[in-house]
Amino acid sequence: MNSIPDLVGAVWRKSSYSDGGADNCVEIADGFPGAVPVRDSKNPEGPVLLFPAAAWSGFVGGLKDGRLG
């Protein structure tokens, strides 16, 4: 059974492609093997989505090569 990682102390970062606005993007936290925590930058105390690392990698790859977006 997979467990939910403890996100206390997680270091969140915005994409380098962010538009520079204060709260207009998602943030991810690194350092969680096999998982990518994602949250809404407008609501940092709100819920976190947890994606399998392989699924997140496929999503980002699709955005980069134009298959998505």
Rank of each mutant, 00 (worst) to 15 (best):
E27N: 05
V36N: 03
S15V: 00
G31P: 09
V8N: 14
E45M: 11
W12C: 04
S41F: 07
V26R: 07
I28N: 03
G9T: 12
D65P: 05
S18W: 05
F51V: 01
R39Y: 02
P52A: 15
G58C: 07
A10Q: 04
G21P: 03
L68T: 12
I28G: 02
P5Q: 06
R67W: 13
Y17P: 00
K42D: 10
P44F: 09
G20D: 05
I4V: 15
R13L: 11
C25H: 01
G69Q: 09
P44L: 15
V38S: 10
F51G: 05
D40I: 00
V26W: 03
F59L: 14
L68P: 05
G34W: 05
N24S: 15
P47T: 08
L50T: 12
G69S: 15
V60R: 07
A53W: 10
D19K: 02
S57V: 09
R39M: 01
W12K: 00
K14V: 13
P47A: 14
D40W: 02
I28S: 00
V11D: 03
I4Q: 10
A35T: 14
R39L: 10
F32S: 11
S41R: 06
R39F: 06
V8A: 14
P47L: 11
D30Y: 03
D40V: 07
G58Q: 06
V60W: 01
I4M: 14
K42C: 07
W12H: 00
F32C: 03
V11I: 10
